[in-house]
Amino acid sequence: MERIEHHASFGGWQEVYQHQSKQLNCTVNFAVYLPPHLKGEKLPVLYWLSGLTCNEQNFITKAAAQKYAAEHQIILVAPDTSPRGEDVANDAAYDLGQGAGFYVDATQQPWADHFRMYSYLTEELPALINSHFPVNGKQSIAGHSMGGHGALIIGLRNPAQYQSISAFAPIVAPTQVPWGQKAFQTYLGADQNTWRNYDAVTLIQQTSQQLPILIDQGQDDPFLEEQLKPQLLQQAAQIQNYPLILNLRSGYDHSYYFIASFIEDHIRFHAQYLK
């Protein structure tokens, strides 16, 4: 594991690391924000998963999250959105291939050799964070768009590992929208029963252990009606009596201007469960 960036930020350090991933079978970057803390002090972790076309840089340079992570003494971890490299399969479309891992473990070739973001994020990356940074064992997960989908499905499938979940403009029902259907057909194949393992609406209907969920959705988001459909998750949560907060934000779109406007709320939300 090699540190490739190191910047002072709000009394702490914004860093980027690079390592050879066994799950992804390639070299991978991930960002870590270490808030100011006392020597020997252990802190909770908030994982952030970014959206289509993003990498570890988008969140750390655009979300303005470090200030609030420093105030609440939370370590922020922001991985890349997919495996990358000359030997990694890719597609010319922005919503498939490198930059568009969809946080699944691909079963179809040529993707299966590298596109194992689900296992990377639930097994390999947490093991690295736990062994190299001053963590106390408590963690939560958040994300945006495709990354909001990732945060929801990872949290819902692994409720014992997380304290809380949040998302900005998440893809909540990928089996029912074009982005998800295209990705799942490509990565997982034609058997739609396998798709359901990565669909938040399906998972919230099946889970017996509940985590608090916060979602913010811009009402001027151009992807709202076709790709995001937060009302589907809200309806499923109401039927299950699941603790879900959905905020519809007038005037806001899908951009990091939206995320930066409400990231303080999300970090404060997680902080109450990470204490």
Score class of each variant (00 low, 15 high):
residue 30 F to N: 01
residue 30 F to V: 01
residue 32 V to G: 03
residue 32 V to S: 01
residue 33 Y to K: 02
residue 33 Y to A: 03
residue 34 L to P: 09
residue 34 L to A: 07
residue 34 L to S: 07
residue 35 P to G: 02
residue 35 P to Y: 08
residue 35 P to N: 01
residue 36 P to D: 01
residue 36 P to L: 02
residue 37 H to L: 03
residue 39 K to L: 11
residue 40 G to P: 04
residue 41 E to G: 03
residue 41 E to V: 06
residue 42 K to T: 15
residue 44 P to Y: 08
residue 44 P to D: 09
residue 44 P to R: 04
residue 45 V to W: 01
residue 46 L to G: 04
residue 47 Y to A: 04
residue 48 W to Y: 11
residue 48 W to C: 00
residue 49 L to A: 11
residue 50 S to P: 14
residue 51 G to E: 12
residue 53 T to Y: 02
residue 54 C to Y: 09
residue 55 N to Q: 07
residue 55 N to S: 15
residue 55 N to Y: 11
residue 56 E to G: 07
residue 56 E to L: 11
residue 57 Q to H: 10
residue 57 Q to W: 10
residue 58 N to G: 04
residue 58 N to V: 00
residue 60 I to Q: 00
residue 60 I to K: 03
residue 60 I to W: 00
residue 60 I to F: 00
residue 61 T to W: 11
residue 61 T to A: 06
residue 62 K to E: 05
residue 62 K to Y: 02
residue 64 A to H: 15
residue 64 A to C: 13
residue 64 A to Y: 14
residue 64 A to E: 13
residue 65 A to G: 05
residue 65 A to T: 02
residue 65 A to V: 02
residue 66 Q to P: 05
residue 67 K to F: 04
residue 68 Y to L: 08
residue 69 A to K: 04
residue 71 E to C: 02
residue 71 E to P: 00
residue 71 E to W: 06
residue 72 H to K: 13
residue 75 I to G: 07
residue 76 L to N: 11
residue 77 V to T: 03
residue 77 V to E: 02
residue 78 A to D: 10
residue 78 A to I: 15
residue 78 A to P: 04
residue 79 P to T: 00
residue 81 T to Y: 08
residue 81 T to E: 10
residue 81 T to V: 15
residue 82 S to P: 12
residue 83 P to F: 10
residue 84 R to T: 09
residue 85 G to H: 03
residue 86 E to G: 14
residue 86 E to H: 14
residue 87 D to I: 11
residue 87 D to R: 12
residue 87 D to Q: 15
residue 88 V to Q: 08
residue 88 V to E: 09
residue 90 N to A: 10
residue 93 A to R: 15
residue 96 L to E: 01
residue 96 L to Y: 01
residue 100 A to Y: 03
residue 101 G to K: 08
residue 102 F to Q: 12
residue 102 F to S: 09
residue 103 Y to L: 13
residue 104 V to G: 10
residue 104 V to H: 05
residue 104 V to Q: 13
residue 105 D to R: 03
residue 105 D to N: 14
residue 107 T to W: 05
residue 109 Q to D: 13
residue 109 Q to I: 06
residue 110 P to L: 14
residue 110 P to A: 13
residue 110 P to W: 14
residue 111 W to G: 07
residue 112 A to I: 14
residue 113 D to H: 08
residue 113 D to L: 07
residue 114 H to I: 11
residue 114 H to V: 11
residue 115 F to E: 00
residue 115 F to P: 00
residue 115 F to D: 00
residue 116 R to G: 08
residue 118 Y to N: 12
residue 118 Y to H: 14
residue 119 S to Y: 08
residue 120 Y to C: 03
residue 121 L to M: 12
residue 122 T to M: 06
residue 122 T to H: 03
